[in-house]
Each structure stands twice: as C-alpha cells, then as structure tokens.
C-alpha cells in the first residue's frame, strides 16, 4: 500500500470514528440531556405519558411494600415536594433502601402509577465510616441516614 493511500484510509478511519462518537454523543444527550424526571415534573405533566422515561427521587421512609410470594415490590419516591408511587417486579440493587436516591426506568400506567422495568440506585458523594455516620445522625447532622443501614 502506498503511503498516500494509507494516509487516506487512515483519515477516513478517523473521520468515521469521530462521526460514530458524535452520533453516540448526540443521541445520548438528545434523549437524556435530562437523565431523569423528578416527581414534581411528572405531577406537572412534563414527563412523556406514552413512551418510557426515567424518574428519580428519594425512597420515602416506611413506603416499601414487598409481596411475600414474589419479587414484586412497591414504594413511593419523593423530591420533598411531590411523590410518585412505583411498582417493580425484579431484583433491587444493593444500595436500594429507604431514604436512598433511586432512578427508575419505565412507564406511567393509567392509574398514575409508575411501572418500572429497571430500578437503579443513585448514591451520594459522601463517604464515611459507619460510626461517623451514626454520630452525625445523633447530632442531627445534615447527612441523610437510611433507617436500616448496617453498622458493624
């Protein structure tokens, strides 16, 4: 292969790569510029009513209800202003617990309930030992502490 031909092929290769990258970027950001909607946006009717979308919020305390015979679970998420009820049939991630942020992917069903296909846990940027978290919770600190966290 002549050097010029090699160069042309390479430039085409790079252009194709950049093209694929930009298409990926645009489709990803077009659809998910806002990665998830909040319960308030859903209440205001901003979320799509027919196609699937993502919803995010904190799992409300004492709202998790599990079906003892199956994996079915329902819970309420909140953005401190509005709430949405979510029903889900599947395995929850390890970080799923009351008080924790989650993002669910699914659809609104006609009863105003969100039927999730997938539930992902969103963790916060705080890292600390369990004892520190306990002490902060006792002192009424600002860190939201889940009810059922395991302290060793």
């Amino acid at each position: 292969m002549s050097p010029r031909r090699k160069r042309i092929i390479l430039i085409l290769f790079v252009l194709a790569g950049m093209g694929i990258a930009s298409v990926l970027l645009l489709t990803a950001f077009e659809k998910n510029l806002l990665y998830f909607y909040s319960p308030s946006q859903v209440a205001a009717g901003e979320a799509p009513s027919t196609r699937a979308f993502r919803i995010g919020g904190l799992v409300m305390k004492n709202s998790v209800q599990r079906n003892p015979d199956s994996l079915e679970v329902s819970f309420v998420i909140t953005d401190t202003v509005n709430t949405t009820k979510i029903v889900y049939d599947g395995i929850l991630p390890d970080l799923f617990r009351e008080g924790q942020g989650i993002v669910a992917n699914g659809k609104l069903v006609n009863t105003g309930v969100f039927q999730a296909q997938e539930v992902l846990a969103k963790h916060d940027e705080n890292y600390m030992p369990p004892e520190v978290a306990d002490a902060l919770a006792k002192a009424g600190g600002t860190y939201p502490l889940p009810e059922n966290h395991k302290s060793k």
Partner: peptide, 19 residues
Amino acid sequence: KPMWGTWWVWDARLTSELI
C-alpha cells in the same frame, strides 16, 4: 454493577468519558 444495579448507563458523565 453492585451499587447502582447496572454495568453501564448512557448518562452524561459516562458517555463523555467514553468519548
């Protein structure tokens, strides 16, 4: 995978790092 419940999502941080 263990924390969020997924290997990959197309959110802005992960997508821009892939780019």
